[in-house]
Amino acid sequence: MNRVMSNKWIIGMYILPAFLLISIFIFIPLLLSGYYGLMDWDGIGAMKYIGMENYFNAIQDGLFWQSAFHSFMLALFSAVSLIVYLAISLVLASKIKGSNLLRKIYLIPMLLSSVAIAQLWIKVFNPSNGILNSILVSLGVDNPPAWLAEPAVVLYAIFIPILWQYAGFYILIYYAALKNIPESIVEAARIDGATPFQIAFKIKLPLIMGVVKVTIVLAVVGSLKYFDLIYVMTGGGPNGASEVMASYMYKLAFSSNDFGYGSAIGFLLLIITLIVTVVVRKVTASKEELQY
């Protein structure tokens, strides 16, 4: 078997199917969208080469930067909410009653499709019949906001289901990582007289730092390219108040019939996400991995 695995041809053969799939569905379309970004194209008729014009326009497009700002806000909120998920997992991983059941409950949103979640939250946010405003009114709030209709609140209202949707995923990851910490280390700390807080912050957290870093990258990148709930719940409206980069790209390509410009925005989205990923990795990189 060793001889098989050292044969370059065999290695190539093993890689080939996955490589072909990834090329056809990811790398080639990526390059193509960069190329379409150089065109004046309505997606139907003939293409016309216009050089970097779409890219220059995008850089000066206030709406694009507004939607980019919204995407970054989402990334910030997702990253900060990781702290809450971590706290929940720390509680769940310590032996409390019913942690098994709670873990499953937290995971439920992950099992629903995005469109189902969107429909659910549209009902929750309904300004006159929704559960949220009904509760607010019964608590004595006079004029509760129309959550998805007011530009000042719509973005934050829509963050709630997005964060809720992925909470279970991160809690599960942290939970698994925490469960991987050898009991003997925690035991030793306890014998040395460490308080539960000290155990959490000085022992457990440093040990799962690698996982935490990965989740930060996942949360940030996932937020930057986020699309589905926003598309279904508000379509980016009212008037762009909840538009993110991906929904703006979709709108340009499919509603405004400007495939060239949409492709350029898509390519910029890729570049921005790449840069941010590199930056996040640089910032969270530590000089030495902890060893106990």
Binding site: I122, N126, P127, L148, A149, V154, G237, P238
Partner: peptide
């Protein structure tokens, strides 16, 4: 118009 009309779909 009904409350929150800018956030409601035609179906709603």
């Amino acid at each position: 118009f009904v409350k929150g009309f800018n956030g409601l779909s035609d179906e709603e």
